[in-house]
Amino acid sequence: MSTFAPAPGRAPMRTILATQIRMELLLTARRGEAVVLAMGVPLLVLLGAGLFDVTNLPTTDRLGYVVPGVLALTVMSTAFTGQAITTGYERSYGVLKRLGASPLTRPGLLLAKTAAVLVQIAVQVLVLALVGLAVGWRPEAGALLPALGVTVLATAGYSGLALLLASILKPETTTGAATLIYVVMLSVGGIMFGAPDLGTAGWFLLPLAAHAEALRETLMYGGSVPAGIWLALAVWAIAWPALAARKFRWE
């Protein structure tokens, strides 16, 4: 067969997904300095609030309280803020329009982006945890699995919301909104201070507070994640990506 003859066809969906995930990771690596910079705020909070009495915490184990919160903050920073800003600009630059012309589907792109973000988060969380351990953080190792579980749910929820915002707002507006939400969550999310007690409703409104609380319950006390938090993060993990898959636009 001549190399000019058409031979149309679509690669298996898992090949397409793997290809796209590899590409997203390559692009992430290319902006490696941004990935490192994104760890700046969490690192400052970890060392500042974790080692010095700069804020009032509802406990004397400052690192035990602050490190899980910082890990949750990093997840939000990468999966939500960073992702919303990057995707918003990709869309306005026409990068995504090209992918829209390919057999990659919308849910496929969202899944690939979320998977790539998970890999990035794994690396960042590992680094921050190691820094924490180095300065004296002593977590409980018994409840690692539920801690990982809520982290995956939180990532999926943030990622869905990020892609939704990036899809319906202009890139400049996305950047502003994502930064604003980051600052609000950081202030009331129970990272450096105790979170306002809003009861169960609070877990649905402040996923960062819910995630941080779940990580403290598991990593600080070796306990289990409250059912309300599982439910709240699961709702986020399903609702936002589902909405994003419906509303997402390539251009």
């Binding site: 679509r10 590409m23 902006r31 990709e90 026409g94 990068v95 329009k97 012309a101 390919s102």
Partner: peptide
């Protein structure tokens, strides 16, 4: 039409930009 149909079509868009870091 779904992605199997899309795979049979080649498109050169008028105003697409590229993943500039590639």
């Amino acid at each position: 039409a779904g992605s199997a149909w899309r795979a049979r079509i080649g498109i050169v868009l008028q105003d697409a930009d590229d993943a500039a870091d590639l």
